[in-house]
Amino acid sequence: MHELSIASAIVATVERHAGGSPVTVVRVRVGRLRQVVPDSLEFCFGMVARESVCEGARLELEVVPAVLRCAACEHEWEIEAPPFWCPECAGGDVAAVRGEELEVESIEIEQEESACIART
């Protein structure tokens, strides 16, 4: 159940960027190589969002496909499941180019009209 820790970390990240305004949408990018269960994360987010700027916010998860790159032949390919060997040269020195993301991409916040006018 590390989704609870991750959900708390998401709320803490959002709080640093929301400036105290209520948040309506939180967009999070989750790489395929992370062991994060989307349903579980949404459930935990709803729980830890209570009494924070994220209360009632919708969590939108974007799953980022896993793309690997072979150091030997520079081939790049997308994988759904192991093996991680290069399909071109069978090399084992591979690194993830994408798929390890776990980041808050953006948020939508509600702001007072007056605050906007005061700023212009």
Partner: peptide, 17 residues
């Protein structure tokens, strides 16, 4: 009230890191 889009692009586990 109006809605504002805020780009964050921050690793969720940045604080742990």
């Amino acid at each position: 009230m109006h809605r504002t889009h805020v780009r964050v692009l921050e690793d969720v586990l940045d604080a742990n890191g």
